[in-house]
Design a protein around this nucleic acid. Structure first.
Lengths: 253, 253
DNA sequence: AACATATGTAAGTCGGACTAACATTAAGGT
DNA sequence: ACCTTAATGTTAGTCCGACTTACATATGTT
């Protein structure tokens, strides 16, 4: 066959037009960023791999950062499916499931260091996530939907948004998984779900910090050696138990 | 006076030799990195500010990254003195003092975003911090020194090391402040200080994650809006209370 | 077939890191 | 004072990579 076997491959057939250069460039860039990092990444390398001249990418991306943004979206999709797969096998809202989610986050960062860095730095303003509004809607109870229903709807809105032109941030889809999990945890323990964000953000900080300290080698010279799974497990468990204790004693958050 | 008023200023006097170009370049670079970030930083700009040609820096630094490493050291010193000043006004080893330290960490990151990024990325292997060894020495009790004495000695060693040729990392000096604080907390609550590192690293992760999520604008589109002081306070309090609870119930860490 | 549009190339500009050859100054020994 | 030497600066380049302009080729609509 004279056609490329997949549309995203390099232009090896000698044809003047590539066929799907845009996809080929994104694929090549994901690989290049993964190994060399966003700093070491050059359009020249991506062009060479795709088998086109260095000027060709500018027919598909306004500049280098546009291409890197596409790489970011791919990375967030990758992380999102990992987290959804992980969440699917768990009973929602338990300390164990939340811990497992955190470990998944850190493991993704560890196994995709350069992509993870890019995901964090390369932030573009995303859709608003207005928990206040969504929980008010739930509290009113007029639509008969459960909390989880509403979160699913919200998630759906987010996904739609993410498919729109210049989709800014699939990262929110990952965050919504954590939100749902924390909301369920609070609900199970009789705590007002209004406080979801107040609890979810510190938990995010725990795994995010662990991930960055790990990939920036900050644990490298410490003895006894550091186990990041232990950090996530310990921090999550202490944090949630401390929360429950304080709620039991004071009756509020 | 024909001399520069400080040795680190730009070479405005028209003299062929600058006087203290090395220091002038570091000073200029700290400013430039602070505003434009390490990515936006150019040797050209630094040279222009110092009033010398673009080739001059190579008489003092082997390359750009050497100069950036000096900037990193300055940044760590800055953060270290902030944390020491903060710790000086506190009773060591209380939840309040540990919380205050965390807030200082996040505030520094927020007010020195680009420097903080550089400090984290620009890691070079530092001196080993062998807590196992130091706590064994303390447990043997043969030298009659208190735990805090030993940590002070260790800190002194670290500082000496940091003054040596190619001093790799003043960051460890910051970390040692946290270590001492956590060790004191554990000791006060009857917990074996052997576990200091197991407790200190998750606490570091909490503030480190909070700092990065903040400066990477990950809290930007959330409602209700996020207060990072509240995150640090809440996470620290829940974490330490959860730890104490579990220790009380199980008798071990 | 003719045209418009999409997608590619070639050849150049520009900025910034780095280098080689040369110039100036500071410091110290005689 | 004078000469030598090392330290520290300059000039004028190279190299690399992002980006642009003008031109070439393919595609698909009529």
């Amino acid at each position: 066959m004279t056609q490329n076997s997949t549309s995203a491959e390099a232009n090896t057939s000698g044809r003047y037009h590539h066929g799907d250069l845009r996809t080929a460039l994104i694929d090549a860039s994901v690989e290049l960023v993964s190994t060399a990092g966003a700093d070491g990444f050059t359009l020249k390398d991506a062009s060479r791999i795709a088998g086109v001249s260095v000027a060709a990418p500018y027919r598909h991306f306004s500049d280098k950062s546009e291409l890197l943004h596409e790489v970011t979206e791919v990375a967030f999709s990758k992380m999102g499916s990992l987290m959804r797969k992980n969440a699917a096998g768990q009973e929602l809202g338990t300390i164990e499931s939340i811990t497992a989610m955190g470990k998944t986050y850190v493991r993704f960062a560890s196994e995709n260091q350069q992509l993870f860095r890019l995901m964090c730095e390369n932030h573009r303003g995303g859709p608003d996530v207005n928990l206040e509004e969504i929980f008010k809607e739930h509290a009113s109870g007029q639509n008969g939907k459960t909390l989880i229903d509403l979160l699913e709807i919200k998630k759906h809105d987010i996904n739609n948004y993410a498919l729109a032109k210049n989709a800014p941030n699939k990262g929110i889809a990952c965050f919504s998984i954590l939100l749902k999990s924390v909301a369920t945890f609070l609900d199970r323990n009789g705590i007002d779900v209004q406080h979801t964000l107040k609890i979810a953000t510190p938990m995010w900080a725990i795994v995010h910090g662990t991930a960055f300290l790990l990939i920036d080698h900050k644990f490298q010279n410490l003895t006894p050696s550091i186990d990041t799974d232990d950090i996530v497990e310990r921090a999550t468990r202490y944090f949630l138990n401390g929360l429950l204790l304080e709620y039991k004693e004071t009756g509020h958050i």
